[in-house]
């Protein structure tokens, strides 16, 4: 009985009742675990810290051998270079950032507008071969981009969508629709369909019931889903590099990758541009952290 009482009181791993020798061993293990976790955290975070450091270093410190970890001159020049061209005016990178905002934003909006109603319909109605349709939808998302880009390239060349923002928007929307449907179907499933039934008994049509009662409840889910779609489009590189070429159309990932094309590479600028590029993603990801598991598995795994 005494044991069970101890069990009920103990909150941590229940090792409190063990003799002191084992407790000591337990504490040693616990210390070891903390040390191991710290080491792993340092290793995983070091590249990020190094990127931040490089972005605020002067060029001669960036290339210093051996590498300077602490004693370097802090400068914000690299961040200025990201936005301002050497001769004044807007830099090519900042134009690429604006393109990215436009392409990612519009493609996400398109995927949401197409995907959310489809998710609702798949959740509520008995559709023929529903499971097969849903699996088919998800499997289009798994196609290797390099393979898809070959026919897309030929197709776009025929219809004049090569090197256009519309072309990128369409392909990103097509890659985000499967994700939106799977992710949103989970959210719709969580809203009881009885709400709609009740509304319909009050005289609303099914469409009105969806629009007035279910949709408002889905808004947080829609926001989370859209954020993930936004991150996918924002980070995407393969389609961007093969389907666009001119500065007026190019999004940020190929533009940043283009920084290392020349004979000398300004790594400080690369680091600053990468940080500016990554920061919104990290903020957005933090906002949707509750839905990360579902988000990164394309809506397939929920909690």
């Amino acid at each position: 009985m005494a044991v069970s009482v101890d069990e009920a009181v103990a909150t941590g791993p229940a090792r409190d009742r063990t003799p002191s020798a084992r407790r000591l061993g337990g504490r040693g293990r616990s210390v070891l675990e903390v040390v191991l976790l710290t080491v792993l955290a340092v290793v995983m975070l070091f590249p990020v810290l190094w990127m931040i450091e490089t972005s605020i270093k002067e060029n001669r410190d960036v290339y210093a051998i051996p590498a300077k970890f602490f004693n370097f001159t802090v400068t914000m020049d690299h961040f200025k270079d990201v936005f301002v061209a050497p001769g004044g005016g807007r830099s090519a990178l900042s134009a690429a950032f604006l393109n990215s905002v436009l392409v990612a934003g519009v493609s996400t909006a398109l995927a949401t507008v197409l995907g959310v109603p489809a998710a609702w319909a798949y959740s509520r109605f008995s559709v023929k071969a529903k499971k097969d349709q849903l699996f088919f939808i998800l499997s289009t998302r798994f196609m290797p981009p390099v393979v898809v880009v070959i026919p897309i390239f030929l197709m776009y060349r025929q219809v004049g969508l090569i090197d256009s923002k519309l072309g990128l928007i369409l392909i990103y929307a097509a890659f985000n629709v499967p994700f939106t449907i799977w992710m949103m179907k989970g959210f719709v499933d969580e809203v009881p369909s009885e709400y709609e039934d009740a509304a319909m008994l009050d005289g609303y049509t099914r469409l009105q019931a969806f629009w007035r009662f279910t949709l408002p409840l889905l808004l947080p889910g829609i926001a989370a889903t859209a954020v993930f779609a936004l991150i996918f489009s924002w980070n995407e590189f393969v389609f961007a590099i093969f389907l666009t070429s001119s500065d007026g159309v190019r999004t940020a990932p190929p533009a940043i990758a283009g920084l290392i094309g020349g004979t000398t590479v300004d790594w400080g600028l690369v680091a600053a541009a990468s940080l500016v590029f990554a920061l919104p993603v990290l903020i957005f990801a933090y906002l949707v952290r509750k839905h990360l598991v579902a988000g990164v598995t394309l809506g397939a795994v929920r909690r």
């Binding site: 995983m44 590249p47 190094w50 990127m51 590189f237 993603v281």
Partner: peptide
């Protein structure tokens, strides 16, 4: 906090990751 910190690499674009490791 630990989970959030550990998750940072995953959210970065492969371009950023590739470039940065190339530098390191």
């Amino acid at each position: 906090l630990l989970t959030t910190l550990f998750l940072i690499p995953m959210m970065l674009s492969p371009v950023v990751v590739g470039l940065f490791w190339r530098f390191m």
